[in-house]
Design a protein around this nucleic acid. Sequence first.
DNA 1: ACCGGTTTGTTCTCGCGTTCACAAACTCAT
DNA 2: ATGAGTTTGTGAACGCGAGAACAAACCGGT
Lengths: 221, 221
Amino acid sequence: MTARTSTESSRDIPEATVARLPVYLRALTSLAEAGTSTCSSEALAAAAGVNSAKLRKDLSYLGSYGTRGVGYDVDYLRYQIAREIGVTQDWPVVIVGIGNLGHALANYSGFRSRGFRVVALLDADPARHGELVAGIEVRPFDDLERIVREHAVAIGVIATPAGSAQDVADRMVACGVGSILNFAATVLTVPAGVDVRKVDLSIELQILAYHEQRKAQGEPA
Amino acid sequence: MTARTSTESSRDIPEATVARLPVYLRALTSLAEAGTSTCSSEALAAAAGVNSAKLRKDLSYLGSYGTRGVGYDVDYLRYQIAREIGVTQDWPVVIVGIGNLGHALANYSGFRSRGFRVVALLDADPARHGELVAGIEVRPFDDLERIVREHAVAIGVIATPAGSAQDVADRMVACGVGSILNFAATVLTVPAGVDVRKVDLSIELQILAYHEQRKAQGEPA
DNA sequence: ACCGGTTTGTTCTCGCGTTCACAAACTCAT
DNA sequence: ATGAGTTTGTGAACGCGAGAACAAACCGGT
């Protein structure tokens, strides 16, 4: 959202494409583990659950990594996507709010395997301090600034109750955290230049409920 | 995706709007709890974190529930949105896969408060059977069909490892489950008419990592 | 009854994303 | 070398959603 005029070679990739790149990455990893060394856009698209034309257009934003008449080299393409997303490097992450969800996040293996390293678990409740979760000690929320500075943390995860989420976000932003993944059921307000992504479990269910209701309307029992 | 020609009075609401309605609902609940009985589109939009024009356009798909020169009655609008989404009724839900994430989901209070009732927790691991999670007994996965039939479950939640997710989805669909919320890190294939929403924690982080990387490129240390 | 101020509902325009369709480019067999 | 077959990369058309802007409608005071 900040005006980055990009004197770099970095073409700006559409947001919708960025959101799909991790899916392609996972599909490629899956193919590689199955022993496949080359794949067509059709095959990869099927594995990723998208249209093959869309896949090709998405990949074209990164460059021309395929060979016409042949397809894509799985390992090569995988590396290129990983580099573009940034998962070839190490991303230190802080999780704030060690309730049920915080526990689950701390134990989630999908983070570490993609370069995300949980460097600290923080909670405001003194009763939790010292507790070991996923082999990491839960520490006071006030340690946030020191930890962010020491580990150069750029990404923060908020798994607190809705009431505390904005405060946590403010503190994170003040410390220099540039991206926040928010699981709390509230709308966060952050300054321009800070990225926020929201995951709201009950909203997802409500969207499904809407569609279920529509289906049920058409077919009276 | 199925051709529902909608002889009903139900206008078809754009998908983007459907995804925002739960946000408005939450904002309205918040306003109601704060004692506000009337609000303008500007105020509600601010609370929901969207543009006021977008909010008004979204609400116009439901009908004309506001009063020009005045605004919206908080309780009235809240009920209308809740009815449209379907959260005025009770939605029985089954959760399959009681690992760390399944635990968190079972305990998540945001479900019950919005009409979603967890009627069963299922897991393939016999070691887990009988265990009490959130006051509900974990049962064998094979009980799925009976439970879905008995409770008329329409929505299923998958929180298993990626390897088992497709099997679970197939079984759910076979039982008549029409909507699936998938937390497993895999692309589910389901027949037309079945809705699937995917929540992938590591993908969200990867998207943030991409943006962080871009920010870091512009400012060399 | 009328007028100024306010706020909704809607129309219009613009930009983004998706999809189609095809030319360019590569492989392999002859 | 040439041609048939295959697959990528991209130009163009299309549809959806976002945002601006405005007319219609309502309230309150005089």
